[in-house]
Simulated scan of single mutants.
Amino acid sequence: MVEQAQGLHRVELIMGTAISIDLSGSIDSVRAAELADAAFAWFREVDARFSTYQDDSEVNRLQRGELSSADASPDLRHVLDECARLWRETDGYFDAYATGRLDPSGYVKGWSVQVASDRLTAAGAPDHCVNAGGDVRVCGRVAGQPWRIGIRHPFEPMQTCWVLAGTDLAVATSGNYERGFHVIDPLTGKPARALASVTVAGSDLGVADAYSTAAVAMGVKGIDWLARLEGYESAVVTEDGLAFRSEGLPVA
């Protein structure tokens, strides 16, 4: 749940989720529409390239051996490199092959939102919010105030656990409350069940997305792992209802 802007607000269903773009500030309405069009075109491009559900996506062609990594697009090579780095950084808990096949979606959604946000800023729209199914990037202000981001309660769909605020903030949440126990512990091959919701906030949404996924895969030891991260804050709700958050979490 994100506070909406007074200006442009658009939502489209892409990548299997609702993606919203809010542009605030004094940007011209025609220019705002053009920027939103470009951002949604980018998300459709990402979906076509990285979807595990589209037979002709680059990811599936690479998985089947029809495409080599050397011949892949620069975006796919970047994603593969980042997934490898994050695998090392998380001691193997963030694993694009956790399900037995290539699925980098635990990084791609956050990364694609980060790219869209960076492009909006570069194009002269510094006050904006991009939200892809709970992976949120906010910049600037809305109605003169920092953006406010509500973190959904995993057991009470109409309630929030925390409300965060920021003018330059990436917030990613992973959990089992919408898609069931879909995060796999790559060390056991079994669904991770101990943490109902993990939120990570920081500067880069692709990294925050991967960190939140990795922490869910770790289970309860992910709470201590998150506390040791530098530059990223976190909040956790366990499957038995306990809640934890780091001291630096930007709570409104």
Rank of each mutant, 00 (worst) to 15 (best):
P157D: 02
P157Q: 01
M158S: 14
M158Q: 10
M158W: 04
Q159N: 12
Q159M: 01
T160E: 13
T160H: 13
C161W: 07
W162A: 09
V163S: 05
V163Y: 03
L164G: 10
L164K: 04
A165K: 06
T167I: 02
D168C: 04
L169C: 07
L169W: 00
L169R: 02
A170F: 10
A170K: 01
V171T: 07
T173R: 00
T173K: 02
T173W: 05
T173A: 10
T173N: 11
S174I: 04
S174P: 11
S174K: 06
N176K: 06
N176P: 06
N176R: 14
N176M: 15
Y177A: 14
Y177T: 10
E178N: 09
E178V: 04
E178C: 00
E178K: 08
R179D: 12
R179A: 13
G180C: 01
G180L: 11
F181A: 13
H182L: 06
H182K: 05
H182Q: 13
V183Q: 10
I184Q: 10
I184W: 07
I184P: 08
D185A: 05
P186E: 04
P186F: 05
L187G: 00
L187W: 11
T188Q: 05
G189C: 02
K190D: 11
A192C: 03
R193I: 07
R193E: 14
L195D: 07
A196N: 00
V198H: 11
T199Q: 09
V200W: 05
V200P: 13
A201W: 08
S203K: 15
D204N: 15
G206Y: 08
G206K: 10
G206M: 06
V207K: 13
V207F: 12
D209H: 07
D209W: 11
A210M: 07
A210P: 03
Y211H: 12
S212E: 11
T213W: 04
A214F: 07
A215S: 13
A215R: 03
A217K: 08
M218L: 09
K221E: 15
K221M: 01
G222A: 03
I223H: 03
D224H: 02
D224K: 07
D224V: 10
W225V: 05
W225E: 09
W225D: 09
L226N: 02
L226Y: 03
L226W: 08
L226E: 03
A227D: 15
R228Q: 14
R228W: 10
L229Q: 15
L229N: 02
E230P: 00
G231M: 05
G231R: 09
G231A: 12
Y232E: 12
E233N: 09
E233H: 12
E233W: 12
E233Q: 14
E233D: 15
S234L: 00
S234D: 09
A235P: 09
V236I: 15
V236W: 12
V237W: 03
V237L: 02
E239T: 15
E239H: 06
E239A: 15
E239D: 14
